[in-house]
Amino acid sequence: MQVKVKINGKEYQDDVEPRMLLVHFIREKARLTGTHIGCDTGNCGACTVLFNGRTIKSCLMLAVQANGAEIMTIEGLSTNGLHPIQDAFLEKFGFQCGYCTSGMILSAYVLLQSNPQPTDHEIREALEGNLCMCTGYQQIVESISYAATKMKEAGK
């Protein structure tokens, strides 16, 4: 089946099997490998992308269901340097192995759009769908909190 999807502002069109998962389309057809696969069942959040502005688990959607959609992956977050959230994850050590990081940052991005000054509790709640096996989450929470402060200061 023909699928046409806009990912990070660029259009991708391909003939795919109806059973192809969106995450495989993103990784293998669009070759955007910052979106990862960790569990295959929608639990871990490593495959989190923005689908028409909302976060989804791209392992739970078929590529054909994304026909006509606008998707943003981690590669689309900042084309010029680091987004403040990315910078915050470096500044506050919000990652270790980096495998969950793309999903974590995109979940944080969506959170900070709707709630620019979240409490630690709200940050933790917002990360319900993202597993990190390395950090124990504390430095991730600190990173997002730091990013919120920096973004407020910068008026972003």
């Binding site: 990784r27 070759r31 955007l32 490998t33 910052g34 979106t35 990862h36 696969i37 992956t73 981690i74 590669e75 900042s78 680091l82 990315q86 910078d87 994850f89 470096l90 500044e91 050590f93 990652f95 192995c97 980096g98 495998y99 990081t101 793309s102 940052i105």
Partner: peptide
Amino acid sequence: KPVRRNEDVKFVKGEATYVDDID
């Protein structure tokens, strides 16, 4: 000192190359 992991910027940009990312 708590020196930043600037060598590992690739992880926050989705640019690290894990085995499955090798084309």
